[in-house]
Design a protein around this nucleic acid. Structure first.
Lengths: 127, 127
DNA sequence: ATACAACTTTGAGCGCGCTCGAAGTCAAGC
DNA sequence: GCTTGACTTCGAGCGCGCTCAAAGTTGTAT
């Protein structure tokens, strides 16, 4: 009754989150992730809440937030609810950067598509 | 009458393209850019066509194409019109990657915005 | 008992994309 | 003539984000 939750090994956690086992340990080492629970033999055990945290951090990563900033964010999250305003500010700033980047990406994609169209018309002329 | 075109110095080219002078020289060194013309004193002179090439390559970069792939693309461009089909294939493959990445980015942005909304509601409750 | 597999820690190494430092050349201005 | 400044080359260095290697521990199967 004390352990109703499935606890994943680091390998399973890696598979689920898409990170490597190396990366999971690395993230813990640099303080990005809080140390997770350990089995009797010292092996890491990941609970659902750990996985959800990792998955959110991963979303920050893939949208381009730096590890350093993620560490700041994670540190705030581990403090208290009083840090919510600061976390909010970080996320809003990051969201704005992502929006700017999305615009840039769309513009550049447009240029690439125009080039594709140009190449297609050249191909037609060449036969 | 032999030089109707404005020729920019490397500094000016850097300002216009948003790259650093270091990067412009680096790109030339690794073969990503063809050697540009030189002034009598050996200084680089960038013509409009050079700048447009650089700007297009820069769009490939900022959409995530690797330097290595850009080199392949640039090499094809410097060969002949017969390489148009290969260039087209590269651009189409890259476009698809960018589209996939854009989707991922939008999804992750959505998750971040949901977190922002959550934090805002917490802030309200706290007063 | 022994082999094997999965994990552990620690520190080193790597690939990418620049970025910089050192030493030299050249042209213009005082 | 001498300084200043913008350029040149070349190789080394750097920051990021992992990624890996080595050596050790533990648990299971034969």
């Amino acid at each position: 009754m004390t352990n109703p939750e499935p606890q994943l090994t680091i390998r399973e956690a890696a598979q689920r989150t898409g990170l490597s086992v190396h990366t999971l340990r690395y993230y813990e080492r640099i303080g990005l992730l809080l140390p997770v629970e350990r089995a009797a033999n010292g092996h890491r055990r990941y609970a659902e809440i750990d996985l959800r945290r990792i998955e959110f951090l991963n979303k920050l990563r893939t949208t381009g937030m730096s590890i350093q900033q993620m560490c700041e964010f994670a540190a705030l999250s581990q403090e208290s609810d009083l840090t919510v305003p600061q976390r909010l500010a970080m996320l809003e700033a990051h969201r704005n950067e992502v929006l700017t980047y999305l615009d840039e990406l769309r513009d550049n994609l447009g240029a690439i598509e125009r080039k594709i169209a140009l190449y297609r018309s050249i191909e037609e002329k060449q036969g």
